[in-house]
Design a binder for these strands. Structure first.
Lengths: 222, 222
DNA sequence: TAGCTAACGTACTGGTTCGTACATTAGTGA
DNA sequence: TCACTAATGTACGAACCAGTACGTTAGCTA
């Protein structure tokens, strides 16, 4: 709780639909990611906003739709980051490493997003299913991976028999787990996966792993 | 809901503390993993049991402690599976693959466990921290990994500079993500990571990935 | 077989929480 | 400047839900 909280200066009570809506989304993101869907309290979200609970229902309709809106925005952010990705000038190995690092960095910077996705999975992705926006929004990362993979496989550099979706799963799993399972992993094995001092180590480890997998000589080791 | 539910035959109303306790744990595991901690209903757990809500409080004390007991049992199961692991007669490469496959299989067979761990992470692992049992119970898998890693590194087979905890994180992340993020991943990318038809593919992919990482020639590719 | 206790059941309560009915005001277009 | 609508605030209700007070019975032991 920030000690300096605006004591509702009457002069500043200006109507601004966009700002109110955005502020609700900000606070809701924090509250949902803090406590989970059922643990989150609509009253608590309202209290941390400069507006009232009435507005949440006015703009979003209900708790369920609010959560969906929060998810939509969170996914929008990562999609935007992925669209910035420009690796076509790099060789396949460097390009894949760059892509993995971008994924790594985004997960690191957005623990709230990770938690929201975890929560959504507990609820069977029903909000994603209910959202038109999330349904039709593709994944720029996937397109990038597809191009890199094609180049790498054509040149013979990449020997692994994977497609873009599976490679994306491989990269995401490491980045996601490191953040999502930080607490149980730390409690059970005594190692903080998100310790800043180990950040570079894990970032390099991810790249090494993916590249080793893609470029390994496939022997009869099965 | 199973249609054939025992209509409380009065003759069978026998007292059996152990059975009652175990039944509560079974049902609670399902309910918590279905709905999350706050989404789970104590009344619902009681209703699906042959006993009443009163007994939950009699045996466990409260919802919080019940969840902790559920977690303790779930972690106990995986620890037991890991203890069965006997790979000392295998060469390091085969041993690592076997270990990865066992981890893979356990995650596949226990989606409830995965969900519980996800839920516990949303709550900052506070129940693990509150549990003596979970605190002092180590990880047999870690010991195994340590031995294999030492052997592989000594023989020069393994070139990667990892320790057992990090390698365990790498293996777990893939196995965990595949189950935990099944729903969002499926909804967004149209691929079911737990499709039985792709099971062998992913199992092999995990082993290939880990072994490629461990045995790669470390060039100046950074 | 009497009595004692662990095991079990019923019915209720107090607080919480999502959602809404009703009232009000800022800003905009005619 | 007047009226109309989008935006906002207040107060409340109804359902839900964790937890408990109180009462009962099975089965063991002396």
């Amino acid at each position: 709780m920030t000690s300096v909280e605006e004591p509702a200066r009457p002069g500043e009570r200006i109507r601004d639909a966009a700002r109110t809506r955005a502020e609700i989304l900000d606070v809701a993101t924090r509250e949902f990611s803090r406590a989970g869907y059922d643990g989150a309290r609509v009253d608590e979200i309202a209290a941390r906003t400069r507006t009232t609970k009435r507005m949440i229902y006015y703009y979003f309709g209900g708790k369920e739709q609010l959560f969906t809106a929060v998810l939509e925005r969170a996914y929008g952010v990562i999609r935007e980051a992925e669209q910035q990705l420009d690796v076509d000038h790099l060789d396949p190995v460097a390009a894949i490493r760059r892509l993995a690092e971008l994924t790594f960095d985004h997960h690191e910077r957005h623990p709230d997003f990770i938690r929201l996705v975890g929560i959504e999975n507990i609820h069977g992705a029903e909000h994603i299913a209910a959202s038109e926006e999330l349904g039709r929004m593709g994944s720029p990362a996937l397109d990038v991976i597809r191009r890199i993979l094609a180049a790498g496989q054509e040149s013979g550099l990449f020997t692994a028999d994977v497609d873009a979706v599976d490679l994306h799963a491989m990269i995401s799993s490491f980045c996601f787990f490191r953040v999502s399972n930080r607490h149980t992993f730390g409690a059970l094995f005594g190692r903080d996966l998100v310790d800043p001092g180990r950040r570079e180590h894990y970032r390099a480890m991810l790249g090494d792993m993916v590249i080793a997998y893609l470029t390994a000589e496939r022997a009869a080791d099965r």
